[in-house]
Every structure is written in structure tokens, then in C-alpha cells.
């Protein structure tokens, strides 16, 4: 009799556990994902790997971690190669659209000193909005055709807007919205997962091999890596946006790149920028 009662008790307990598992809601995305902890670990890793590099100096990529390259960069910066783009960008930014409005009408603070807040998560549309996407949406809202994303006028406008934010630390917000957490997590996954025939992830170069040589290049640490964008890259011989960099990285590891401003690229930019919160904007920048 006692055995039977014990068996019934155990079965009842098991049923109760099963019932609770069915009734209680699963842990939400926000509960499972801890971006603040990710950010602490991310920044601690690079601060430990490069103890002599000041937080804001991470924005300067390879020039922050290699003495010889820094000397070359200091020489280059006497006549920064992005200056022409900066000048063009200011003109483009201030030139009214056909309807008389300007870019300033589309942005908070008239578009001045706001780069550090991009990308942001738009709770209305449920997606990540980068500065370049916002620039093109502004154009479309005002009856203009969107600009190509990787080079040219887009890079120039981007350069001017970034220059008005120099010294302002990245302040990427992550609202308490499961969709924002999902976008963050997708960006994080993209950063760490290996892809392409060469089986490289973003982290393979910019975490595990940061500061080391890859043929003639010194690999930039991932911390602060987007704070100098857009960049004039000597290898390109022209300016390029974040999209251009993501696409060329994918191509280098023999992975078919996505279209500029693809959702995955925007999520990746969101994750990387959030990881760099606190690093001051230094764009536009230069790279070898």
C-alpha cells in the first residue's frame, strides 16, 4: 500500500512539473541574452590584450597597436586623404533637395553631432536603422533617388556627419524590445560564425588575430572598429562606408557577400557598435 502511495506521489510530482513547464511562459529573449555582460567581456578582452592602448585610441585600428604604422599614419594625417570627401559631404549635406528641404530636416539635432547614436533600433518598424539607411530614407521622403551605399556621395555625406560627432562616445541604445534583442543576437552570431571557403569569421581576424599580421596588414581590434567610418582606404584608393568594408571582408574569405544594408549587415553593425559603446567617434578615418 505504502509503495503504491509513493508511486502515485512521484507521478503526481512529475505531472506537476510537466504542467508548470507547459503553463509558464518560456524565458524571453531579453532574459536569455545579456548584452551588457557581452559588452563588459568584449571590452575587457581588448583592454587586457592591449593594456597600453587608451579606450578612445581603439578607434584608430591598426595605428593604435603598431608603432611603425602609427608613425606612417601621423605623416599621412598632415594631409588627410579624406579631406576632399569631407568638403564634398558638407556641400551635399547643406544643398537643398528639389522640394527645398535638406538632410537637416530629417534628423534630430538637424543631423549635427548624432553619429554616435547610429545604428539604432526603430521600434515602429522593428528593424535596425544605420546612418546610411537613414540618409537614403531621408532622400526618398523628399522625392530624391537613393544613393549607392558603398562609395561616392553616400560616403561623403557620412564623412561630414561623422566629423560633427568627433569626440562623442558611441551610445548605442538597446531598448527593452524582444525584436531589438533578436537583431542584436543575429548580429552577434554573424560576427562569430565562420563562413566562406576559407572558414573565417569576423572574430577570426578582429578578435583572435587582432594586432597580428595577415600578410602585409595589421589586423584591427574589433573594439572601436566602426568608430572611424567612413574611411579612406589606400588599398581602395577612395572612401568607403561600413557596407563596403563588410562586403570586401566577406569576399576575402570567399563568401558570397550580401547586398548593402542587408538586414544581417545592419544587425552586425548594431552588435559591433554596441560592443564599442564608450569609444569616441573619430570618423572619417584612414586605413592602409
Amino acid at each position: 500500500m505504502k509503495v503504491a502511495i509513493a508511486t502515485i506521489g512521484r507521478r503526481a510530482a512529475a505531472c506537476l512539473v510537466l504542467l508548470l513547464a507547459l503553463v509558464l511562459p518560456p524565458a524571453s529573449a531579453e532574459q536569455r541574452i545579456d548584452p551588457a555582460a557581452d559588452q563588459r567581456a568584449f571590452q575587457a578582452y581588448f583592454r587586457q590584450a592591449f593594456p597600453s592602448v587608451a579606450l578612445n585610441d581603439f578607434a584608430n585600428g591598426p595605428y593604435a597597436v603598431d608603432k611603425d604604422m602609427r608613425k606612417q599614419w601621423e605623416e599621412i594625417m598632415q594631409f588627410p586623404p579624406y579631406d576632399f570627401a569631407l568638403e564634398d559631404g558638407k556641400k551635399l549635406f547643406e544643398t537643398p533637395f528639389k522640394n527645398g528641404k535638406t538632410y537637416a530636416d530629417c534628423f534630430p539635432q538637424k543631423g549635427i553631432g548624432i553619429r554616435q547614436n547610429y545604428p539604432y533600433f526603430d521600434r515602429q518598424t522593428g528593424e535596425v536603422v544605420t546612418l546610411d539607411l537613414a540618409i537614403n530614407r531621408c532622400r526618398e521622403q523628399n522625392g530624391e533617388t537613393p544613393l549607392p551605399y558603398q562609395v561616392g556621395d553616400m560616403a561623403a555625406i557620412d564623412a561630414y556627419m561623422a566629423s560633427t560627432s568627433r569626440g562623442k562616445p558611441f551610445a548605442i541604445a538597446l531598448p527593452a524590445d524582444p525584436r531589438a534583442f533578436a537583431a542584436y543576437e543575429k548580429g552577434k552570431k554573424f560576427f562569430y560564425e565562420r563562413r566562406g571557403q576559407l572558414n573565417f569569421s569576423c572574430a577570426s581576424c578582429h578578435v583572435q588575430a587582432a594586432g597580428k599580421r595577415l600578410r602585409g596588414d595589421i589586423l584591427a581590434p574589433a573594439l572601436g572598429i566602426l568608430a572611424s567610418f567612413p574611411i579612406y582606404r589606400s588599398d581602395w584608393g577612395s572612401m568607403g562606408t561600413v557596407d563596403r568594408r563588410f562586403i570586401s571582408c566577406n569576399d576575402q574569405v570567399r563568401s558570397v557577400a550580401f547586398k548593402p544594408e542587408d538586414e544581417l549587415y545592419r544587425d552586425l553593425e548594431y552588435f559591433l557598435s554596441y560592443m564599442s559603446n564608450g569609444v569616441a567617434i573619430a570618423g572619417p578615418g584612414t586605413r592602409p
Binding site: D38, A41, F42, Y45, K188, K189, Y192, E193, R194, R195, Q197, N199, S201, A203, V207, Q208
Partner: peptide, 23 residues
């Protein structure tokens, strides 16, 4: 053969990426 290898890579990395996360 290349396409199959890329499919395999994607399936593997769907879980393996978490091992590389800085903690």
C-alpha cells in the same frame, strides 16, 4: 561538392559560433 560543404559549414556553425563568444 563546394555547395554541399558550404551547407555543412552553415549547419555546424549554427551551434559552434557560441564557442567563440568572448566571455
Amino acid at each position: 561538392a563546394l555547395a554541399e560543404a558550404s551547407v555543412e559549414q552553415a549547419k555546424e556553425q549554427d551551434k559552434l559560433w557560441q564557442n567563440a563568444v568572448l566571455k
